[in-house]
Design a protein around this nucleic acid. Sequence first.
DNA 1: GATGAATGAGCCTTCATTCAT
DNA 2: GATGAATGAAGGCTCATTCAT
Lengths: 206, 206, 206, 206
Amino acid sequence: MGLKERRQREKDQRRKHILAAARSVLYESGLQAASISRIAGLAELGVGTIYSYYRNKEEIFVALQQEGLELLCEKLKEIDDTAVTPVEKLKQYAAAYLDFSRNNREYYDIINYFLASPEVMFAQPLKERIDRRGNNILQLVAGTIKEGIEGGVFGNVDADRYATILWGTLQGMLQLRKMENTILKGEDFQGLYEESVENFIKGLCP
Amino acid sequence: MGLKERRQREKDQRRKHILAAARSVLYESGLQAASISRIAGLAELGVGTIYSYYRNKEEIFVALQQEGLELLCEKLKEIDDTAVTPVEKLKQYAAAYLDFSRNNREYYDIINYFLASPEVMFAQPLKERIDRRGNNILQLVAGTIKEGIEGGVFGNVDADRYATILWGTLQGMLQLRKMENTILKGEDFQGLYEESVENFIKGLCP
Amino acid sequence: MGLKERRQREKDQRRKHILAAARSVLYESGLQAASISRIAGLAELGVGTIYSYYRNKEEIFVALQQEGLELLCEKLKEIDDTAVTPVEKLKQYAAAYLDFSRNNREYYDIINYFLASPEVMFAQPLKERIDRRGNNILQLVAGTIKEGIEGGVFGNVDADRYATILWGTLQGMLQLRKMENTILKGEDFQGLYEESVENFIKGLCP
Amino acid sequence: MGLKERRQREKDQRRKHILAAARSVLYESGLQAASISRIAGLAELGVGTIYSYYRNKEEIFVALQQEGLELLCEKLKEIDDTAVTPVEKLKQYAAAYLDFSRNNREYYDIINYFLASPEVMFAQPLKERIDRRGNNILQLVAGTIKEGIEGGVFGNVDADRYATILWGTLQGMLQLRKMENTILKGEDFQGLYEESVENFIKGLCP
DNA sequence: GATGAATGAGCCTTCATTCAT
DNA sequence: GATGAATGAAGGCTCATTCAT
């Protein structure tokens, strides 16, 4: 029966619509201001409606982050499929993440927020759901590093660990961007970022 | 003149007293629960009094962050004074930061929090004041790198830039620790952290 | 004509079905949690459907109360039919009410609730409908008292009035049970309850 | 030093002021509508202010009930001091409670409400605090019954138990008043009430 | 007739900030 | 200079009720 299907499709769309509103609020007014009622307002829905799609505020943020991680993951997969050498791949992964942090700020911000927020904020089960997505990304990167090791381009390191280290490095570098106007004044941030990747790769070589 | 001086000294002490209380609240109950009235309570002062020493909550946190950075800076200076080789220094800086994140959680958390939270948070002037402190630390690290370059241990890189990269890396790695129980389950975080430093240094060598 | 009848019968059954669900919710989660949507859920009906059988939440509760009173009334009738002496009957009525308050908590609670809550609660017409049911019960009790008067067991009192007084007494005693763990701690409530009935009867004797 | 005293006095008065507002809201709009913000509105205070005097809504109601019980208790004490015979005292206690339920409706309603409300509503400690007040009243009544027993007017019963029974009876009778316009239509409620007391006393006599 | 998504008023509570004393 | 009572906007969330399908 097409009815049920249509209903489901509509429901899914509404969920996305709400998420989009949440993303916009986040993007335009920052995390602090991202209240349910604002989201509802932007979505042109009643507050209660939001709650019939998401159990609570937390869930919205989790969904948003998953969405973001998924998007990012897809971009990285594309690179994995098109780029040739492992070194090239790693560089492009990094570039993609920088790009993502710029062009998908709302996603980036929320990912970042989750990383920085006190553990208390999210219950363990939620945290696991979130982190699992992150894991996919790490696996991808680790795969590329393994490739490099097998090809003799990289030394014989633990690929998983170095994938994690790379992510940590990028994540840390991006945070420093906050200081573009103060400490990093006059510096070319993108160059710095790239240099950090190159340095990481250089360390990786035998 | 003595009177004025004493007044000033008393005022300074009171400010520190308030800061100490804020730190305690932060440490014991986390950022969410760090309300002015709690701080006032712990400081055994009236709420109003707090406001006559700090314009608002924000200012307290900024001051706290400055204090934290100062403390960290001193620890690094000590290392600079006692450790011998540049490589050793860098490794010890890193170890000190890890240590700081563990034993001075209140400070670390707040530094981390403001680094990660959307910039809406602070007005520009405040940001500058904070970042200047961070700059001191970077200078110190950069000095050590320069040392290494001059001694031929490191390749001929831009010391300032690499100091920044190191900080970014450490900062990023520390954030990943949040995932000790999920993604990093079973991993030895400290080992990972140290490995990231070694990789950084390895990249630095000619 | 059969069709109309069947329709009506179906409708009646549906009403009862809804009432049964409401009763269950009440029994399992208490008055506070007895929301329409829960009732609908348990009845496996849509919320809207509930509203096509009952104008609003109030009406459901009223119906529930009527049902409860009816059930109680039947039990009392049974006693009236089987017990022999008026005194025995009165005692058994009382025992039956105590029993009802224990084994038909859903019903008892709601009767009690509406008796105790401020009258603002119900519009006049509703109230009348409820009270009429209560009247049946009173008539029954009054009948027994009359019996006793005619038999010379009881003094020559106004039976209606004393029926009311008995009900009031029982109702009041049952409410005190709420304090079993505080004021009545250590007391044997059932004994107290029975004593109140005996005292009532003793007063009734010539 | 007068300052501290005055402060305290003012605080006490404010508490009373808030309680008075709560009482009024209760009186005028019933329990259902007694929200904090309404109370605040009537008290011409900010919502927050209410919360600085009472931890939460619950506490306000508890305070209100205690106040009510205290008031009632005083009235009964007066009777105890002035009335002569135990029978007279009991009758006057009953009359006083009826009077109280009429002239101090707001208090009576809330006492009644607490008796009828599901146990869940109030945490055990609160309940105990409430019930303790009720206990004072019971003690008083029990004292009078003892008096009667010692004077040979009453049979040798357990005074505490009969005090409880009397209270239960009165409480139950008062609840029936709700039906003045339906079941009791045409009845003289006050007469009925008095008759219930007389019947109780009659039962008490040897 | 049945449905259940949508609504939004309303609830309780918190807390940064002000200002009269 | 110190105080802390008062404020009230804002937040997250619930639920009786409506109405388009």
